[in-house]
C-alpha cells in the first residue's frame, strides 16, 4: 500500500449516485469512501485533530468541575 490517494473516489461521479450510503450494519459508507480517498498521512492528521478536540473537551469538563 502506498501513500497515494485513490482518485477514483470523490463521491461526485455517476457511480456515486448509485452506491448505497449506509450498509446493513448501519455503517456510513460515505465516510469510508471519503477516508479511502485520503492519503495515510492525511488520515492520521484527521485522527490527530479528533484526538486534540477530545482532549480539549476533557480539559474543559475537568476545569468546569472545579
Amino acid at each position: 500500500m502506498s501513500d497515494e490517494r485513490d482518485t477514483n473516489e470523490g463521491g461526485t461521479g455517476d457511480d456515486a449516485t448509485t452506491l448505497p450510503l449506509v450498509n446493513e450494519d448501519g455503517v456510513d459508507l460515505t465516510l469510508i469512501r471519503w477516508s479511502l480517498g485520503l492519503t495515510a498521512t492525511e488520515r492520521l492528521r484527521v485522527l490527530e485533530g479528533h484526538m486534540e478536540f477530545a482532549e480539549m473537551v476533557r480539559t474543559a469538563r475537568r476545569d468546569a468541575a472545579r
Partner: peptide
Amino acid sequence: GVAAVINGAPITTS
C-alpha cells in the same frame, strides 16, 4: 485503532 486509520477506516482512538 491507528492501524485501522492507516488502512482507511474512519474511526477514532486515543
